[in-house]
Design a protein around this nucleic acid. Sequence first.
DNA 1: CTAGACCCTGTACCAAAGTACGGAGTCAAC
DNA 2: GTTGACTCCGTACTTTGGTACAGGGTCTAG
Lengths: 134, 134
Amino acid sequence: MSSEITIGTLARSAGVGVETVRYYQRRGLLATAGTKKGAFRVYGDSELARLRFIRRAQALGFKLDEIASLLALDEETDRESARALARAKIADVEERIRQLQSVHSALQELVSCCEHTEAPAPCPILRTLGGEAN
Amino acid sequence: MSSEITIGTLARSAGVGVETVRYYQRRGLLATAGTKKGAFRVYGDSELARLRFIRRAQALGFKLDEIASLLALDEETDRESARALARAKIADVEERIRQLQSVHSALQELVSCCEHTEAPAPCPILRTLGGEAN
DNA sequence: CTAGACCCTGTACCAAAGTACGGAGTCAAC
DNA sequence: GTTGACTCCGTACTTTGGTACAGGGTCTAG
């Protein structure tokens, strides 16, 4: 049933490097396989699923510590907690978007000011960064 | 004219820590004052201006390496370069906003799916992260 | 039976932007 | 004439998510 796979194959199947798998093990996100076949540890489907879970969660902006919390949840009984974590992450993402948008418009302003200033004189961008009034 | 200030005052005036000033000096963003008054190095207005420049640029999302490039520009002759750097940063910020927006909508989808699933069964968020189809 | 590919463990290193600490010297005030 | 705040210089640690290497052992094919 559960395919017997070494760490290299496991890593490749999830699209990560062997060192990354080991790193997740060190971080406690993934168990180090208990069973060995000869001298090599052997992994199965559950480890692969967990590894993919980590990657998907990461793509959604969760950091490894948060993923550890997600992984500790039970599909059956922890829906509230899962939703709470997801909502917190949404708020987080929204905040970062707001920040970036404000930076974006400040930069836009500088550039368009620079473009519309015909004076051959000092660069408005550098002058603004340099100071006087703010 | 140029106020004679020690590093602590300089740092406080720019809203950073002394260690941060020293760090910028190590990074070559800020010169270590040559003049000393007794045993202590003495800074003036130009260092304060430079420090503020760094902070403003940082608030606009430039990293220290990029700020080094900005600081190397001449207000009079390097307008083109300044604009180019600002435009590159704008593109950068836009890209990050797009990324975050796509993450945001994926998260929204998960949460609203979870909210509208009345089955007492498994949590849709955790199940989606856990896999099968994607 | 040997070469090459793979695995094991442990440790060190990378970026980025600082922060903290140790041990010494010095300055100003009371 | 000493206390307390400040400075100097150098080094090490922090966070996050890995990556790289050293020095073995082992497995598989030809």
